[in-house]
């Protein structure tokens, strides 16, 4: 390091490559170990398994309890994300284009879940919604209600930055000058142009729902077993089948991350935004 007094030329250095290789090894080690565990047929006293099998995957994918847990989680995810988008996208749009002063309030609401993590937020929720006029705990409805709150940041960030890239304000003004109504312009011009950002929001929300454990545990418990609850219970009974669940979960996350990255790279459908000089960044 000390000797690198040629500042501009970015030479191939060995140091950074080694550091990153060690980092990747460290990050992937638990995942590889889980993968090996899930396909090991015989792994008693050797460093690597002596024979392999896919039977644990067959086992979990023929276990109705696991399949139902996946279906339940999917159902919660689909309902939460559709509700979240239907409620939030118009609000983000209206605030961004017509009432920018009020955006700060939405930003605070979006940030609140970070200050009140699930384990804290759950207390008030249990007290309010177990019994009383609206008994929701132990049902799918409470999960949808709180996951909606938890996915707010994803939807806000993705949709807001898409609106920014397409310069939604200019587009709306142009549409109105050309005689289009506001609702019409929103549905036919804005929505088709922000779909990729919206899709990113959906996918991030899905990976959140599939990874959420605390709210599920505290608010619903065994009555509505989601994937993470299933994993927690399986972990105590059978190591190999739990590891098959973990690997499946990780493949799912891998897939979602890949799609998000692809979508993030593409430009919104055919529209070439002209960056304003000195304009909004990010």
């Amino acid at each position: 390091m000390r000797r690198s007094s040629q500042p501009v030329a970015r030479r191939k250095e060995a140091g950074p490559t080694i550091i990153i290789a060690v980092l990747l090894l460290y990050l992937f080690l638990p995942i590889v170990a889980t993968l090996l565990f899930s396909i090991a047929k015989d792994w008693q006293s050797s460093i690597l398994p002596t024979s392999y099998t896919l039977s644990w995957y067959g086992h979990i994918f023929s276990d109705p309890r696991f399949l139902f847990a996946v279906l339940r989680t999917l159902l919660v995810g689909v309902l939460t994300v559709s509700l979240g988008l239907a409620v939030m996208v118009p609000v983000i749009f209206v605030l961004a284009v017509y009432f920018p002063k009020w955006e700060k309030l939405l930003q605070i609401s979006v940030l609140l879940p970070f200050a009140f993590p699930p384990v804290v937020a759950a207390i008030g929720l249990i007290k309010l919604y177990s019994g009383g006029p609206v008994p929701l705990t132990g049902t799918i409805w409470i999960l949808i209600a709180v996951y909606f709150i938890l996915i707010q940041p994803f939807i806000y960030q993705s949709v807001r930055s898409s609106l920014r890239t397409i310069h939604a304000q200019d587009l709306m003004e142009a549409a109105e000058v050309l005689g289009s109504g506001k609702v019409n312009a929103f549905l036919r011009i804005i929505l088709p142009n922000i779909w990729s950002g919206t899709l990113v929001a959906c996918l991030l929300s899905f990976s959140m729902v599939f990874g959420e454990f605390v709210m599920g545990r505290m608010l619903v418990g065994g009555e509505f077993e989601t994937v993470q609850q299933y994993l927690y219970n399986a972990m105590k009974v059978s190591g190999p089948s739990a590891s098959a669940v973990v690997v499946t979960y990780f493949l799912f996350i891998f897939l979602i991350s890949g799609i998000v990255l692809k979508l993030g790279r593409r430009k919104p459908g055919g529209y070439l935004a002209h960056p304003k000089p000195g304009g909004e960044d990010q």
Binding site: P30, T34, L231, F250
Partner: peptide, 21 residues
């Protein structure tokens, strides 16, 4: 991208993976 992906590897799956190791 890898870092981003691994941020999802927390909670129950992570604890389990370390138990295996």
């Amino acid at each position: 991208m890898v870092s981003n992906m691994i941020t999802n590897f927390v909670g129950v799956p992570l604890a389990f993976a370390y138990m295996i190791m």
